[in-house]
């Protein structure tokens, strides 16, 4: 898995709350058997009109190289379990999302794809919303988000954090537990 330690980049702000995964990638683009190439569908229906032409949405004018931190309103990534959402966000050029809260399944999916969900206080989110394109450092080693003179600690589930810091694949750890899993199944009996 791709490692994540520290990221310093400028922010891109989407002020809306409750941005659901259908907005992040509409369902009609889920008929793929791969993980790659989903960047072009990221926020597709915000970025393109029904005529297929690019809209005036700020996402179409964002600097994809320099603005790798997405700042968004509360409850980002609610809705469907599609992992295509973090795949699309990563391919579009985001490496972290900052919000006050995240949909549970989105958060879990993002952590497995090197897209760091950073949960901050409403005060910090307001500051970030007020100053788009701010340079921000997200430090997973110190669990801190820093910009200007502002520092806030954030929490990341300990195992997911370790996997991100070390670029470790959780499946390997689960496979190491196979003897325990087999013993459990023998105890449970009826599952044989």
């Amino acid at each position: 898995m791709e490692a994540f330690r520290t990221l310093t980049s400028r922010t891109f702000v989407l002020p809306q709350s409750n941005i659901d995964t259908d907005q992040i990638i509409p369902a009609r683009f889920l008929t793929t058997t791969g993980r790659e190439g989903l960047g072009k569908y990221c926020f597709h229906d915000w970025r393109y009109g029904q005529d297929g032409e690019k809209t005036d949405h700020p996402l179409n004018h964002s600097d994809r190289e320099a603005e790798r931190i997405l700042v968004a309103g509360d409850n980002f990534g609610c809705g469907s379990s599609r992992e295509h959402a973090p795949w699309a966000l990563k391919a579009f050029g985001f490496d972290a999302v900052v919000s006050t809260s995240f949909g549970d399944i989105f958060r879990s999916n993002a952590l497995k794809n090197g897209l760091l969900p950073v949960q901050v206080s409403p005060e910090t989110l307001t500051l970030l919303m007020e100053q788009p394109a701010t340079e921000v450092t997200i430090d997973l080693e110190d669990n801190e988000i820093r910009f200007g003179n502002h520092v806030e600690r954030f929490e990341t589930e300990a195992f997911a954090r370790l996997c991100l810091l070390e670029g470790k694949d959780p499946l390997g750890v689960l496979l190491d537990a196979l003897p325990e899993i087999e013993a459990f199944e023998q105890r449970a009996g009826s599952m044989s």
């Binding site: 379990s81 689960l174 496979l175 899993i181 199944e185």
Partner: peptide, 20 residues
């Protein structure tokens, strides 16, 4: 509960998943 595709892979391979 619903899971993402990476976790679908975990369950296929081990019949288990990590969960807080």
């Amino acid at each position: 509960f619903g899971i993402g595709t990476t976790e679908v892979g975990h369950v296929l391979a081990t019949q288990c998943l990590f969960q807080r």
